[in-house]
Amino acid sequence: MKMALKKESFRRYDSADYLKSEEDIAAYLEACSEANDPVLMAVALGTVARARNISQLARETGLTREGLYKALSAEGNPSLATAMKVANALGYQLRLVPAGH
């Protein structure tokens, strides 16, 4: 007798689904910044943008939704100006601090 196997379906994992509060977002951005990896930071800003409202963020930054998705992806390479606009619109600022602080 052959048993029928139940077919499983999975959704793609997205960190944005788990950023529910401002505390979650702050902790996520801080953890990502510790890696000192510009690609990871761009992706992290994109993740926070998706967790919030990327359409609203596009209006606040003057950039298109598509442009934000592209720039803040692993394949993107946002300019410093774009990263600063996005951070500011999300309520953050980019700073330079002495290493190790």
Rank of each mutant, 00 (worst) to 15 (best):
L80K: 11
A35S: 11
K85M: 06
C32Y: 13
A74F: 04
S55G: 10
V48D: 04
A89H: 07
R59Y: 01
E60N: 07
L90V: 10
L5I: 08
E30T: 13
D37H: 07
N36P: 00
L57N: 03
L90P: 07
K2H: 12
E66M: 10
F10A: 09
K7A: 10
L40W: 08
S9F: 13
D17G: 08
A58I: 03
I54M: 05
L45F: 11
M3W: 12
T64H: 02
L94G: 13
R59L: 00
T47I: 08
T82L: 02
Q56Y: 05
E22L: 15
G100V: 05
R95H: 12
K2W: 12
G67A: 04
L29C: 04
S33M: 04
L80W: 12
A83L: 14
K20E: 11
P98E: 03
G91W: 09
M1F: 08
A87P: 11
V86G: 00
L80V: 14
A71C: 01
L19I: 09
C32W: 09
G62F: 06
Y92W: 14
N53A: 05
C32H: 10
A51Q: 11
K70L: 05
N53C: 07
Y69H: 14
C32L: 14
Y69G: 03
S55T: 14
S33V: 02
S15C: 13
P98G: 01
M1Y: 09
A42P: 01
R95C: 15
L68Q: 02
V48E: 02
L72F: 05
T47L: 01
G91I: 07
G62V: 06
G67Y: 02
K70W: 04
L68S: 03
E22G: 11
G46V: 00
S73F: 04
T61D: 00
M3I: 14
R52K: 15
A51H: 06
L94K: 09
S15D: 13
